[in-house]
Amino acid sequence: MTQDPFAPRTDDVPEPGLYPGVPADADREAARPAAANAPGALSIRGLAKRFGEKIAVNGINLDVPAGSFYGLVGPNGAGKTTSLSMATGLLRPDYGQVLIHDVDVWGQPLEAKKLMGILPDGVRLFDRLSGEQLVTYAGLLRGMDRNTVASRVADLLQALDLTNDAGTLVVDYSAGMTKKIALASALIHAPKLLVLDEPFESVDPISAANIRDILHSYVGSGGTVIVSSHVMDLVQRMCDHVAVIAGGNVLAAGTVDEVRGDSSLEDRFVELVGGRNQTEGLEWLRTS
């Protein structure tokens, strides 16, 4: 059988220098074993993607333990969304491997997709459906039966406080409501892993608190949540693990306490990523 041209190349190594982050042959095995004996909810190995000349993701490795609330932080354009897209089967990586509970996302996509629910950022929804229809659609597409879908949709709408707008078209929703209905669509099949890209952007504080409660009880019952965000304070309070990504590389990863050490996560982040200006200049802005 000929090789599937669309399968990501996991066994061969990219040409040296193509992705500076991908270790050369000899180092590869050495970089690997940590995850092999502790199967996590998500493990990423040597994941790389380039768009033309720009390396978006530079051969990253990441292990997300099962049952963790994992934060992914990084400046804009750090490669968070690209990494998450590749990890969730939306964007085909150039190199590397992604395992979700030991299922290869790009080798056995159907099995992997059953295990995860995702909320991507910056994509459209089928917004000419009503909120209720959209969540029902997500459930039916996954092959669930009508009664289960109906009762779960009702529960989710209730939990996310959308019952009164369930019949409104999603196109007429506010940004926050749209995030919530997308989250409901991601939860309908009771996934083991939840991957949320910027879930709290433009969500009002009360809804955000409700969503956090739902996510915490989900983690408490054994689920795993990965959220990307650039609100450090939120990640520090909400997550137990965190990874800092910048320029397509993982700069630090581990429990929140390990990563931040003695300082706050925000200070540590700035220290890792750099690029902070000293607050001088703009003298003319002083009003007194």
């Binding site: 089928f126 459906l129 039916l140 879908v149 009164n164 369930a166 409104t168």
Partner: peptide, 28 residues
């Protein structure tokens, strides 16, 4: 604002992926 309860074509097509895609497409 409209309450829940009206699933439109989703209630009329068979409850499987093909039926769901058809219901969504027809709604569109």
């Amino acid at each position: 604002r409209k309450q829940a309860g009206d699933l439109g074509f989703f209630a009329r097509f068979p409850a499987n992926p093909t039926g769901a895609v058809a219901a969504r497409a027809l709604t569109y």
